[in-house]
Amino acid sequence: MNKIIEMEFFSENVAKIVLEAPDIANSRKAGHFVIIRLDEKGERIPLTIADGDKDKGTITIVVQKVGASSAKLLACKVGDHILDVVGPLGHATKIENYGTVLCAGGGVGVAPLMPIVKSLKEAGNRIITVLAGRSKDLIIMEEDMRRYSDEIVIMTDDGSYGKQGLVTAGMEEIIRREKVDKAVIIGPAIMMKFGSLTTKKYNIPTEVSLNTIMVDGTGMCGACRVSIGGKTKFVCVDGPEFNAFDVDWDQMMMRMGAYKTEEHTAYEKYLNTVQENA
């Protein structure tokens, strides 16, 4: 049982949740994720750890409402308990002094990017961060990011905040302006695909963190398998970070849609129960 200590809504559909998880807080590093199960009937959902506090024994996750399970999670209140939280899972991010690192985060992908930016900064890198979202309310954690970035560029599709344009436009502007030694891109699969096509054009080594469907998160089931450089890898134990240029994005996106129908039905059902209880 893990108590919810704090909840902060960035927008109607995105919230930061601070959870009691002392063991995980103690051992987690940038790049790690957890699997949570809200209640007895809940599914196991992988979520990357956005932050942690060893002294307080807490970890932070950021959740976006995309279906029934995330909606139930966002309907929780401070003081509620999450039945299961297990981790930290996956390999931690390899942190080195690369020189100048371009960090691009899209939507809630900014949350897992946060500890990586922090660690890279602490390792002496110059950090240029691009935050992207459809509109202003989907740009999250700007203040936190600003603290660890030497420069920050904000891109919105509709131009409601920062510059108007896609994440790739913001990235390309920087790459053309100065020498970039490394890129880290985290966000929706489609954003990582096009972001890494951009860095590939300029031969900038690029890491991405994949967020595939998982069940156990410990290598046991293979639900998260993706094709990396033509070989099948498990995101949970081989990743979640991979060389972006090796990822078969189309296969990954196809696999992420495996339960589209079921997810839709579950969400409809959830909305109905919420309405009935209201």
Binding site: D23, I24, S27, V86, P88, L89, T218
Partner: peptide, 9 residues
């Protein structure tokens, strides 16, 4: 439960 030796501790 929810404890992975080598990871959680």
């Amino acid at each position: 439960t929810d404890f992975i030796v080598g990871k959680t501790a």
